[in-house]
Amino acid sequence: MYDYFAKRESDGTTHRAHNLLRDRPRRSSGRRVAASRPDVAKIRVDGGYTNATIDHGATLGIDVEVVKRPSSRGFQPLPKRWMVERTFGRVMQHRRLARDYETLPQRSGAMIHWAMANTMSRALTEESTLSWRTETHFHTISA
């Protein structure tokens, strides 16, 4: 399996497949299509980042905003943070990405591109991902 992904990453198939799918789910849901190489002007980070990160962002012309957690108890979505958490959740659905098994960063990147291609193709076909909590899933495993 690893050899398959390594070959597809090195011959450019991974990026071509990802790029072919990238804008289609946005268009089909009526949202704005992102630029192919957007300029990053602002990023939001959690409270674990230091002033060095903010200073480094400033040297690159990027406004780094630290999003603090509210002091009240209970769930409260943080501005834009839910998008990042949703993306992490989607990536974690792919078993190989649940841990950092890859020794080369470009292989990790290729695996993430394939995970996102899977997510985008499911969005286009309106097919949902089976949850491990789904009763059907338990019957499939035990059969």
Rank of each mutant, 00 (worst) to 15 (best):
M1P: 08
Y4D: 07
F5M: 15
F5L: 15
A6G: 01
R8A: 06
D11N: 15
G12Q: 05
T13W: 09
T14K: 02
T14H: 03
T14A: 10
T14E: 04
H15R: 14
R16G: 09
A17W: 01
A17K: 01
H18N: 04
N19P: 00
N19V: 01
N19T: 09
D23L: 03
D23E: 10
R27I: 13
R27V: 14
S28W: 07
S28I: 08
S29A: 15
G30Y: 11
R31A: 11
R32S: 14
R32A: 15
V33A: 10
V33I: 13
V33R: 08
A35D: 14
S36I: 09
R37A: 10
D39K: 13
D39W: 07
D39T: 14
V40S: 03
A41R: 14
I43F: 05
I43P: 02
R44P: 00
V45L: 05
D46S: 05
Y49K: 01
Y49L: 02
N51T: 08
N51A: 09
A52R: 03
T53M: 01
I54W: 00
D55M: 02
D55E: 15
H56M: 08
G57Y: 00
G57S: 05
A58S: 08
L60V: 00
L60R: 03
G61Q: 02
I62Y: 01
I62S: 00
D63A: 00
V64H: 00
V67M: 04
V67F: 03
V67P: 01
K68E: 05
R69C: 04
P70E: 09
S71P: 00
S71D: 11
S71L: 05
S71F: 03
S72V: 11
R73N: 09
G74C: 09
G74M: 05
G74V: 11
G74H: 11
F75E: 12
Q76S: 10
P77L: 10
K80T: 13
R81C: 06
M83W: 09
M83S: 11
V84Q: 04
V84A: 05
T87Y: 02
T87P: 01
F88T: 06
F88V: 06
F88Q: 03
R90F: 13
V91S: 10
V91D: 06
M92E: 10
H94C: 14
R96T: 07
R96P: 01
R96K: 09
A98L: 12
A98P: 00
R99P: 03
R99E: 13
D100A: 15
D100H: 15
Y101E: 09
E102K: 07
E102R: 07
E102C: 07
T103Q: 13
T103M: 10
P105A: 08
P105F: 08
P105L: 07
Q106S: 12
S108A: 12
A110S: 13
I112H: 02
W114D: 04
A115T: 11
M116A: 03
M116F: 10
N118D: 14
N118C: 14
N118Q: 09
T119K: 01
M120Y: 11
S121Y: 06
R122I: 03
R122N: 08
A123E: 05
L124M: 07
T125S: 15
S128M: 07
S128P: 04
T129I: 14
T129E: 15
L130D: 11
S131Q: 06
S131F: 02
E135W: 05
T136A: 14
H137M: 12
H139E: 12
H139G: 07
H139N: 10
T140Y: 12
I141T: 06
I141W: 05
S142Y: 12
S142H: 12
